[in-house]
Amino acid sequence: MPLTIKILSLSKKLYSTQRLFEAAKKRGHNVEVIDYLKCDLVIERKKPTIYYKGRLLEDVDAVIPRIGATHTYYGAAVIRQFEMMKTFSTLESQALIRSRDKLRSLQLLTKGNIGIPKTVFTNYSSNHTEQILSYIGGTPLIIKLLEGTQGLGIVLAETQNAAKSVIEAFNGLQARVIAQEFIKEAKGADIRAFVIDGQVVGAMKRQGKEGEFRSNLHRGGTSQLIQLSDEEENSAIKAARMLGLNISGVDLLQSERGPLIMEVNSSPGLEGIEGATKKDIAVSIIKYIEKNTD
């Protein structure tokens, strides 16, 4: 039976949005891309509704949120409204908010006994740098903006003076940062595991370009298919579960003490993972919706 599916995305031209649209059409469903920033939410007792460009959205079976990091608050509100309307969502509103809070995510992962790089968060001023370094084990170390995304706002500080300068600069901007140990043995590479409904459906190893410690593909990194170890696969699945994400991209590092989770992405892109694995991840997502909207 055909479903009515809405993809919440800022643009029809984005690769992941296009692939999801094509996959839903291929499976015989009625699908539409809607810009969630142009949705009006009418909050009323027993009758929550959503208008898109003045048009009432009715009888929607499922939504696929593709929420940008800078629009988390409003995106979560739109998802929550659909949830109130009893519409199935591949991403729950609270899971989105939880995953976008990097500090909270790391705390939840450690609560679940999942390995992460040693991390320090402090409210002290930059004259506390030496103490922070002692907690982590010295330099080099990674300094990250809590609101950063896609490799932005991440700095490798190789010396104590560099760390102090970077922290001072961020403090001057009143930006919140965390400091993390640098996993040297990862050699500028990480792993992205794509998890759907508690199963890893594909994984790739991303390698940063020479001289670059960040492995993000849009920063010039390369990717290749990888077979995860049992420990890596279990860590990825457990991380997604701890954050309540039914669909996620789990980023992890290979270290001497086992896999370390860096981040769990709630709106992972499809281009890199489909290119590396040659798998139709978009169709897997549509099949997941079909399974949950019987």
Rank of each mutant, 00 (worst) to 15 (best):
S126C: 01
T129N: 08
S126F: 05
P117H: 15
R104E: 14
S125E: 09
L103V: 08
T129G: 02
K111R: 07
I114C: 00
G112M: 09
G112C: 03
G112E: 10
G112I: 00
T110V: 02
N113M: 07
V120L: 14
N123H: 05
R104M: 13
F121R: 08
P117I: 15
E130I: 11
F121Y: 15
N113V: 04
K118N: 14
T119L: 02
S126R: 02
Y124M: 15
L109I: 07
S105Q: 00
H128T: 12
H128D: 13
N123R: 10
T129H: 09
D101V: 01
G112R: 08
Y124S: 14
S105F: 03
N127M: 05
L109T: 05
L109P: 06
V120W: 12
T129M: 06
L106N: 13
Q107N: 02
Y124C: 12
Q107I: 09
N123W: 07
G112H: 11
S126Y: 06
N127C: 05
L103M: 06
L109M: 01
G112Q: 11
G115M: 13
D101T: 02
K111F: 05
K111D: 08
R104I: 08
S125A: 10
R104W: 10
S126W: 02
H128Q: 04
H128W: 01
N123M: 11
S125H: 03
D101W: 06
T122V: 02
L109C: 04
N127F: 07
G112S: 13
H128G: 04
V120Y: 13
Q107P: 08
N113P: 01
V120G: 11
T119M: 04
N127A: 07
N113L: 06
F121A: 12
N113E: 10
R104H: 12
Y124W: 09
Y124E: 15
S126A: 02
T129F: 03
G115Q: 12
L106V: 07
I114P: 03
E130R: 14
L108S: 04
G115H: 12
L108N: 07
E130M: 04
N127H: 01
Q107S: 06
F121I: 11
K102D: 14
L109W: 07
I114K: 04
T119C: 07
Y124G: 03
N127I: 03
I116N: 03
R104F: 12
H128M: 02
N113D: 10
K102Y: 12
G115L: 12
T110G: 06
N113A: 03
K111G: 07
S125M: 06
T129Y: 08
P117D: 15
K118V: 13
I116F: 02
Q107T: 05
T110F: 00
L108W: 04
I114A: 07
N113R: 07
P117F: 14
K102L: 12
H128R: 05
P117M: 13
V120T: 11
T110N: 13
T119E: 09
S105E: 09
Q107V: 03
K111S: 10
D101P: 00
T119F: 00
L109N: 09
V120R: 05
Q107H: 09
N123F: 08
Q107R: 06
E130Q: 14
T122M: 02
K102M: 11
T122Q: 01
K111V: 07
N123S: 11
K102S: 14
I116D: 01
K111Q: 10
T110M: 10
L106M: 13
K118D: 15
L103H: 05
P117L: 15
